[in-house]
Simulated assay, not measured.
Amino acid sequence: MEGTNGSSTGDFILFGFSDRPKLERVLFFVNMIFYFLAITGNSTIIFLSLMDPRLHTPMYFFLSNLSLLDLCYTTSSIPQMLVNLWGPRKTITYVGCVIQLFAFLSVGGIECILLSVMAYDRFVAVCKPLHYMTIMHPQLCLQLAAFAWLSGIANSILMSPLTMSLGRCGRRRINHFVCEMPAIIRISCVDTSRVEGLAFFLAIPIVLVPLTMILVSYGYIAVAVLRIRSAAGRRKAFNTCSSHMAVVSLFYSSIIYMYMQPGNVASQDQGKFLTLFYCLVTPTLNPFIYTLRNKDVKGAVWRLLGKDHKPLDSGGH
């Protein structure tokens, strides 16, 4: 069915990697494994943060929000992707496509701002440790998290309808495996410069400003760490922030490439693998990055298993 503006409201065909069926089979099993790990890891972080009183701190409150975002990322796209990779039909309904687009835009915006909030939290922890709990009080943490969620959702409420309303002249074949904004823009048959210009403009407060805040925060942290005289103190401060910087690097490197340039410039195959990276690989890696060297989370696991003889090391804070 065609709308008055020439945009189709029927099912979309997600072409993805249909021209490489062997790659589709490999991707199906790889994605299924990563999806299971992402769901398990992020659900565990949320569960431990809720159940263990010693993890009722600002750091783990924000980390739980990040894990919830990662769950939304993967759940909004990977099940549909697995169905399309395995079966002969590579379709998604119009409503399903709208939901995917809304989820990607909102969750991406929320995560950008949330990562800057987490950088500020680490800045206060390292540079103002004596005033940490006074500054990062529960009310402020709730306000910062609410601001991140509302900003990302507002961005998606604005951009999703504009993207879906672009005239497509009956085109329904999306050369991607998810309904992502750059892929939808590519199948438009009208001038998309205004939508792309607005997307770039909104990316300044949603992507670049939070990234600048992160870099400034870690600049102050680096100066503070260099002033610490003891090697053990410097190592503890570095461990406090290294996991967050790894997550920031993984997320921003892919998101900037995808959304800070016009939709028809990026290599389409590169775009597909980058989408896989930030909607599946990054959500899978985040729980491991945050917990592999984190004694607090390991201690929470031992206490949950009834083996509270493990010493608690606050080095993860």
Rank of each mutant, 00 (worst) to 15 (best):
L162M: 13
L202H: 00
P205F: 05
V83C: 06
L162Q: 10
Q80G: 15
N84K: 04
S151W: 12
L82K: 02
P138W: 01
I153F: 08
W86S: 12
G197C: 05
Q143L: 14
Y94V: 02
A103K: 08
I92G: 07
A145P: 01
S116T: 08
I135C: 11
T192H: 08
G109A: 09
C141Y: 02
L85C: 01
V117F: 13
M164D: 00
V98P: 00
M164L: 09
V195R: 02
Q143H: 13
G170C: 04
G197Y: 03
P79D: 04
V107L: 14
F177V: 04
A119H: 08
T192R: 11
P182W: 02
F147S: 01
V124T: 07
L142E: 07
L202R: 02
F200L: 14
A183S: 15
P161M: 07
P205S: 00
M159S: 05
C127K: 07
F177N: 11
L105H: 03
F123C: 01
Q80H: 14
Q80E: 10
L105P: 00
L150G: 00
R194E: 14
Q80Y: 12
K90P: 01
L114M: 15
K90A: 00
L198W: 01
L114Y: 12
R172E: 14
F147M: 10
F200W: 11
I206T: 10
P129E: 10
S106F: 06
V98Y: 08
N175V: 11
Q139W: 08
L115N: 06
W86C: 09
S106M: 09
K90Y: 00
T91P: 02
P205I: 05
L166G: 08
I185A: 13
D191A: 05
V124L: 06
L71H: 12
S76A: 15
A154E: 09
V207Y: 13
F177H: 11
L150V: 09
M118G: 07
F102T: 13
N84R: 12
M118D: 07
M159H: 04
L158D: 03
T75A: 15
Q100N: 04
F201T: 04
R168F: 05
A154C: 10
G109N: 08
V95W: 06
C72H: 12
F201R: 03
S76Q: 07
F200M: 13
R122P: 01
V195Y: 02
L115E: 01
R171H: 14
N175G: 03
Y132W: 06
S116I: 10
W149H: 14
I185R: 12
